[in-house]
Amino acid sequence: MIPSQMLKGTLSGCILAIISRKETYGYEIAEKLSGYGFGKIAEGTIYPLLLRLEKNGFVETEYRASELGPKRKYYSLTQLGSEELEAFKNSYNELSNAVNSTLKGGETDEQGSKDAER
C-alpha cells in the first residue's frame, strides 16, 4: 500500500498518462491505477483530481452515452495537458534518480563502513 502523502504528488501525473493513451472515464482510470499497482483507489478519490485537471485546462470533457448504456464523462488530453505530462515525466525522473541515488549511496556507505571496520 502506497502512503497517501506519497500518492498526492504523483497521482495527477499518472492520471494524465492514462488519459494520454486513450479517451477514458473516471471508473476506468481508477481501475487502471489499481491494475498498475496503486492498490484500490475509489473513483471518488480521483474525481476532485480530474476536476483540477479540467480547471487547469489539461483535460477536456465530453458527457455521452457509453457503449454499455449509461452516460459517462469522458476525459481527453489537451495540448496543455500533453505539455504538463512531459513536465511531470521529467520532474518524476529527476526525483526518481535522486531517490535511487540516495538509497544506493546509503547502501554503499554502509558497506564501506563495514569494510573499514574489518
Binding site: T45, L51, R52
Partner: peptide, 17 residues
C-alpha cells in the same frame, strides 16, 4: 465509490471549483 467520509469528498470537490 466515494469512500466513507462524504464531507471530505465534498470539501475536496469544492476546493477544485
Amino acid at each position: 465509490v466515494i469512500g466513507g467520509d462524504y464531507k471530505a469528498f465534498c470539501d475536496a470537490i469544492i476546493a477544485e471549483i
